[in-house]
Design a protein around this nucleic acid. Structure first.
Lengths: 343, 343
DNA sequence: AAAAAGCACTCGCTACTGTTGAGTGCCAAT
DNA sequence: ATTGGCACTCAACAGTAGCGAGTGCTTTTT
């Protein structure tokens, strides 16, 4: 899969990719010869370009237009060519201060982070909250709302809250509910939510045929409470992709927006990114987001103090400013990790 | 402001508006003469159209194109011309079942409702949750998360939950927190959230110089907890406006999407709709959404069992299928009210 | 006097044309 | 191996002409 290229070919390919990223227009041989310090004539460049095209790294929209990088070329570019910019002092300041000033708990920080990512990159910022299930259990609480209706509130040690309306078979008095809570709180102390869930299920089996009916009911209710729904996803800056000339066409845009309406799709896509450490890059069809649209994705993980893992990144066109966005995503992930661990 | 028109003028205006809604193209005199049962020649229609144009109800994009209704015409149309369709059995079924099957509390129902509105109308569905502040207080709870960090959980009688991370000056033991909660729960029993807030503020003044230091601290913490943030807004079907031919232009769309990114703008816009009862219609510039874009808004209120008011509706192009959307919004609002009151 | 018919005129839309220029591929010269 | 030269391709642009939908005004009909 790896491509062998001479130094010159690589320089030329880099020039083409960067030119195309900057202008969004097919780049011709003379432009390359002129703009870069390689002292070569356009004719020579043309020869090289013909080679690159044959190798599937370039394509021409029509006979006499310049060349456009293929996905393969972007892949090669980010793997071995791109010269990463450093994150500027200004950008660092912005990332940190935005992160800090939003006081409203975990969600607040993450929402603000996705907005910051969008602003700095000029593409779409996206943050997926750490999976609640791997967070450490802190507290559970039942509140009676009406006949046979109780509200279960589940709090993780990071301050994430999950609440759920539960219909019970019998009506329970507040004192009963309190006893249930005490029992459950003690049982689940120190576990992660998913461990707690396991525990509840096993307890339900063992306890089922036993004497303590109240506790078996408590288990049944709590089982619903810890069955967590979908994770939280923050997306900011959706309007920014309209800035990109390649998406001015309405049909294409519609496809993209429809994809984003179902956050589920994105979640599925991003769960892959959770596995590996460091910055991950998915180019074009590698995202499997929508067939045709040239969308790329740059992500990285962040870690909370309780060792749960979240994901943040930037979604933009394949023709994206990788050299500046990659470092920003990298730095932001590290900062978010650090700030979340300050507790 | 009211317009006096002969029967024939009104029929012709109606025909033009409906034709334009259907086709999105300027409608000419002969089209009107042909398509509708008025036995008139195109010439006669032209005379009438010239009148209507003079009155500011029609405009022509250029000399020899057909006429386009102005905002004023739409206004007149919805006020006195439109023949409302009835909500079909199928639609009713859809509204009710979607509403019911989503079990996840108030937010779940409302989110599903906005999706349903979008599906039925083919425009954007929007729902604003009842303002938490006018909901009746049910329960407050403090959970200690770390040194000088507590999580305040505020529950309304409708099952809406608001949680907030609060930094305190001193470190409080769980027993202290429990005493605080008991005190506060008793104090705020039966009030609405906003009443409770008032009460806390007055208490803080009277109690301030007094002996019970713990209670004064409790008040200070709870004051933060009941200061509610922004309301919840659910918007679904954003991609659908891309179906409308008048928005295929990228610049226009960008304007719209940017407007929607700040849900704050929408909230402000919609707070107006809360005042009056029944279906409200805002056409074009009446929405004050964005200068140029021809956006209209059809909304209605719904009411919860605790008499708090929420808002739901449809956002679409000015050239919208009013005759079918108005009844849908009306019916949906009524159904949501009913379902929320079944508790 | 209201309605219809006739007619000249406007103007956007489409198709066709020729021209320009950026870009290519290939070959011969260095 | 590199480069200059040259013929060729093709999108983009501008100009032109014809079509047709639609209008406004005038005249005729009822």
């Amino acid at each position: 899969m790896d491509v062998e290229l001479s130094l010159r070919s690589r320089q030329i390919l880099e020039a083409i990719v960067e030119d195309y990223i900057a202008t969004a227009e097919p780049v011709g041989s003379s432009a390359v010869a002129r703009r870069h310090s390689l002292t070569l004539s356009s004719a020579t460049v043309r020869n090289v370009m013909a080679n690159l095209e044959e190798m599937g790294l370039l394509s021409s929209p029509h006979t006499s237009a310049g060349r456009i990088p293929t996905e393969k070329a972007y892949r090669f570019y980010v793997d071995s060519l791109v010269a990463l910019r450093r994150v500027s002092r200004e950008e660092k300041r912005m990332i940190i201060s935005h992160c800090r000033q939003s006081g409203a708990g975990l969600s607040g920080i993450l929402k603000e982070t996705s907005r910051t990512l969008s602003q700095l990159s000029n593409y779409m910022g996206i943050v997926v909250a750490p999976s609640f299930t791997s967070d450490v259990f802190r507290h559970i609480e039942f509140i009676r709302l009406g006949q046979r209706k109780i509200l279960a509130i589940l709090v993780s040690s990071k301050g994430a809250v999950q609440n759920r309306l539960i219909e019970t078979e019998d009506d329970h008095a507040p004192e009963e509910l309190l006893r249930m809570c005490n029992y459950l709180n003690e049982m689940m102390q120190g576990m992660t939510i998913s461990q707690a869930r396991e525990r509840i299920l096993t307890e339900m089996k063992s306890q089922k045929a036993q004497y303590d009916q109240l506790m078996s009911k408590a288990l049944r209710i709590s089982e619903q409470a810890v069955t967590v729904e979908n994770d939280e996803v923050f997306i900011e800056g959706q309007a920014r992709i309209l800035d990109q000339p390649e998406f001015s066409d309405a049909a294409r845009m519609k496809e993209i927006y429809e994809a984003f309406e179902q956050k589920g799709i994105i979640l599925k896509l991003l769960s892959r990114c959770m596995i590996a450490d460091g910055v991950q890059i998915y180019i074009g069809s590698e995202t499997s987001l929508s067939r045709s649209a040239g969308i790329s994705l740059i992500t990285s993980r962040f870690v909370t103090s309780s060792n749960t893992v979240g994901m943040l990144g930037v979604i933009g066109p394949t023709r994206m400013g990788y050299s500046s966005v990659i470092p920003i995503v990298d730095y932001t992930a590290k900062m978010v990790s650090r700030i979340l661990n300050e507790t």
